[in-house]
Amino acid sequence: MGGPDSQPSTTLCLTSAFDDLRLVYPWLDAVATTVVTPEILSAMHVVLEEAVANVVMHGFSPGQDGTIALRFAAEPGGVTLMIEDDGKAFDPSAAALPRLAGSLAEATVGGRGLTLIRRFCPAIAYERRDGRNHLRLRFTLPIG
């Protein structure tokens, strides 16, 4: 652990245990709060929760232990979140969006995560490499 002046780690490693998901928010705040606007940080929270929850809930077989690595990178004009996992292959940028229900009676309880990822992240790139999913989520910073 670093001292009080040390920089937060730009990498966070999680297991596929559901309880690990709660580590995502303080990590994102630590790495991104001073870099992006509050509006972009809110969007990043929404997208990161959706993306990581998708992996935890759907990426692994019951009883399978998985790993998820999150990385944050600040570049000129924007920031990128990278999510790497060893779960089943899944491309959130290309998967079909679920059909919207016409009424509350027909509506499923879940299934809105992909819609939110695409709405709140303007640039999504996916690659399956070496048996792992690599998802890049880029957020553009306002000019000026």
Binding site: H45, V46, A105, A107, V109, G113
Partner: peptide, 20 residues
């Protein structure tokens, strides 16, 4: 201050019960 699809699930579940 924050809600995403996990929270939306709760809203829909609750509303479905009431509407039912």
């Amino acid at each position: 201050e924050f809600i995403a699809s996990m929270g939306l699930r709760s809203l829909v579940k609750c509303a479905k019960m009431i509407r039912g």
